[in-house]
Nucleic acid binder design. Sequence first.
DNA 1: ATTGGCACTCGGGGGAATCGAGTGCCAATG
DNA 2: CATTGGCACTCGATTCCCCCGAGTGCCAAT
Lengths: 336, 336
Amino acid sequence: MTEERRQAVLRAIVDGYVATSEPVGSKALAAQSALGVSPATIRNDMAMLEEEGLIVQPHTSAGRIPTDKGYRSFVDHLAASALGEPHKRAITTFLSDAVDLNDVVERSVRLLSQLTRQVAVIQYPAPREGAVRRVEVVRVGHERALVVVVSADARVEQRTVALGNDVNDEEFERIAREVNEAATGLAPAAVDGALRAWARRQGQPEWADGVASAVASAVHGGTIDRVVFAGTSNLARVGGGFEADAIGPVLDALEEQVVLLRLLHEMAGDASEVTVRIGSETHLESLSRASVVAAPYGRDSASLLGALGPTRMDYPGTMAAVRAVARYLSRIVEAQ
Amino acid sequence: MTEERRQAVLRAIVDGYVATSEPVGSKALAAQSALGVSPATIRNDMAMLEEEGLIVQPHTSAGRIPTDKGYRSFVDHLAASALGEPHKRAITTFLSDAVDLNDVVERSVRLLSQLTRQVAVIQYPAPREGAVRRVEVVRVGHERALVVVVSADARVEQRTVALGNDVNDEEFERIAREVNEAATGLAPAAVDGALRAWARRQGQPEWADGVASAVASAVHGGTIDRVVFAGTSNLARVGGGFEADAIGPVLDALEEQVVLLRLLHEMAGDASEVTVRIGSETHLESLSRASVVAAPYGRDSASLLGALGPTRMDYPGTMAAVRAVARYLSRIVEAQ
DNA sequence: ATTGGCACTCGGGGGAATCGAGTGCCAATG
DNA sequence: CATTGGCACTCGATTCCCCCGAGTGCCAAT
């Protein structure tokens, strides 16, 4: 009984603090939340919660606020809550008339930022490692060529490569044809070998190696490791929860995509559907006062999307929105 | 003489306010800036400047700060100043080893944000309206096709289009071949007509129109109207010049690319090399406390890059940096 | 046109006093 | 043993007040 109520008290403290952004005291808690116990009882519970490191009081004569650990406990004991009907409808209508993958991603990230009133982040859908459908080599300018690779999964990648001026037009035609024939139909893993062999047959001139590696890079590389975000103005929103001096670092982290990507990759490792990193759990100085709620989406759940906000955020709501958008986006991406 | 000194006083006020972010008074001005006149004289000048609406005093007993109009006058009377040597070197080394156009743009925007310590914005280089080099139509999935258009200016655009399931493989082959033949070598303006004619020859089935308009859209559209930015954390930098409640709107404006693009287009109209919009001159509520310094670059000076910061910014320095990066970037883009 | 002098204004800074929300502890109770 | 009412105590925030000083406008003198 008592343990149960202590959780309820923690829950109420989190709720209260999230709502008002002010420390919540025992008296207010007893009055508002229908716990049916006296302030004194709550004070006892609070003392124990504080001993466990779940809450702290900023000043001696203030109420309590949750620690990162407190939020963690709150989140862990949270039952998955569903998104409200209007929001669900919003997702459907907002995403259904997107015209292509880019558009879907753009719309999703905007939508998610609006639903959560936080910064929304989407890691681009991982390519499906589709076989090569076609390779075009097109001459541009005098000594440069453009290599365009189309994969079976509807990805188009391009690279430019220097040719040197010792390639005449007929030769160029031949090269373009041969490269296309050599690579078409191959799985990504097989492309490198095939093109190296081709380059060898050319007698290994520099441009042949260049073309080969450009194709290889186009096949493997791609838009995998890109992150788009929206709703950065939510960082500065009044009552948004971030201190004025905390938003600079967050903006930095967002621009520093590498850092953000590593964090998302880490979170992808955690198995469950929606994962949460709270404050110091991000292990990033710049995000030490921020939380990230993320969920995988797409084939094999290989990509992530999420919301980033102050540790003092509405976790249930944010988690519900992230989950809902991830599900819907999965359906779209997988269908394509 | 007196008019000249009044400009000097304005200049000194702007300099002082930019440096300290505090209103500057007559006494401090007489002491620091070597005007060689007494505070009383300066007070007279100030009174006149205030009458002209170039400066105001926030409170009765405070010094003066420049108005938007004051900054405008300051900027208009500014002699073009050159960028310091170290900065010039930074530009060269930073941009010289970019691998492709995207990379150049990315690097430029980062560089500019570092040089100016403001938010840097770059409008993507306008495409050169190159002729169509090749059109590929590739089947993806069951009922969809991917249209890839390669232009002579090394641009690659893609669109997806629904086919319906009444197109078998041989027919598809034929379509792909015909579309490529119909469009290749044509100038953008001629593509629409050629493809409409082709679609008509097919007997106007839905998919033919779809393919035709996908190609047309790929030829004309593109990355023209995109803007990238970097250095948003400068908005929140302490002493950065923005009030805490002003940065939200600015972030909004940055995400709302449409608005930003319109502003840049407007500025492109102003003839001179580097143009400045100060505060209310942007005609945007969200940027009413911000200034934009922009310069055209690339062929026909068709694209713009710039820096966005508080009205209280270092105009000479920012203008020099913007000018230098624009020049250097022009060289690169035009060479390609 | 410039300058020194002078009275005046008023925002900001630095206490001191006060308020009140919130706490910890303890004894009483069911 | 959990719960509760009572009570003394703490301390951040608010308010008030006062004073300082930077800055001003105006005027008479040069």
